[in-house]
Design a protein around this nucleic acid. Structure first.
Lengths: 187, 187
DNA sequence: TCAATAACTAAGCGTTTGCTTAGATTTAAC
DNA sequence: GTTAAATCTAAGCAAACGCTTAGTTATTGA
């Protein structure tokens, strides 16, 4: 047949993902991806169709990597306490040395315009909905809540998590810990 | 002397601000500003130096417009209840018809990279710090809190407000109302 | 009325964007 | 060893980016 690829697709996507994460979608150019991924533009387009394709694969990878955290949430029966753990684990996950990069998905939701990249937007919404469902599931483990209350609390927690994605870039770590603490005080 | 400007600077900045608000900083081009502001590129650069200058003026205007809300907060002695009012007023302020645009400042904080536009970043941080100080001031009106607790609560509220800027683009209005309600339950 | 001055329009500068093409190189089956 | 296919590199495309320049038009005070 023919030649083999000289790079591992998952490996180069991991590098692309981290670049998007640090840098945002729009302001990450294909030239930057080229350097970071260590492969030629042609190879990028051959493997992933276009820049959007690289990003969609990056989200997939991000999702599987964050699964390590959501899995412990999914399998735990710790209710609210489990969600709080998730918040703290997320902070750790989003850290690169001393700086926090926020959540890749949240960053992009805030950046992308619906009509400029509907495919990306759909992927982002799917991701967020999954997290919210996990929150609902865990909140249900406490029988004292009714369904309407649970839905509202899940929204509240999503709001706090989205906020944390931004706050983590601005506030000090101690402040972030304080925010999380207060967030769960009355749940 | 010479010719008069055929446009009012505040008026064209108002139009620019709304475009940045809807569209973000980076992805708003000078050509788009030209159309929206209704004046030629040359006039933009003559009046505001560069794109960054237009944006800085936009933030100033945004600040004076939001002052209408913060003033009632500043002058009120309603403590926590006053802050809650601010949250609701902010939602109204950020609405354009049926859609929510979030907070111009929050949107940009999330988009801009520190080293690409330090001037803008400084302006944004100043803005956020002001809001936080207002929260601190109002929380102090309730004597039952100590200083450390107040600082932490102000961070918590900032986190919720930042979250709301994103949530408002994704959630329905009823959900947003629910989020605000729960946010203030234990303060 | 007329020179001075500032605001206007429109064209275009160099650079960067996402993406493609052309051609050389490597691999694998026969 | 030859051929065919998929990979690679490198150059270059049109379009859009922020910004500038050249030249015209309008408004002012003397």
């Amino acid at each position: 047949m023919a030649r083999k690829k000289q790079y591992n697709e998952t490996e180069v996507i991991d590098k692309a993902m981290r670049l998007f994460w640090r840098n945002g979608y729009e302001s990450t150019s294909v030239r930057m991806l080229e350097k970071e991924m260590g492969i030629n533009q042609f190879s990028i387009y051959a493997s992933f169709k276009n820049k959007e394709g690289v990003f969609l694969e990056s989200i997939k990878l991000y999702n599987t990597q964050i699964k390590a955290i959501t899995n412990t949430l999914e399998k735990s029966n710790n209710g609210v306490e489990g969600i709080k753990e998730y918040f703290l684990d997320f902070l750790d996950f989003s850290r690169e040395g001393a700086i926090f990069k926020g959540c890749l998905v949240t960053n992009t939701v805030n950046e992308i315009k619906e009509d400029s990249s509907p495919v990306i937007m759909a992927a982002l919404k799917r991701f967020s909905a999954n997290i919210r469902e996990l929150f609902v599931r865990n909140l249900k483990q406490d029988d004292s809540r009714d369904v309407k209350e649970i839905e509202a609390q899940a929204d509240y927690l999503m709001n706090a998590l989205l906020g944390l994605s931004i706050s983590s870039k601005v506030f000090k770590e101690e402040q972030l810990k304080g925010i999380i603490k207060i967030t769960f005080l009355h749940l």
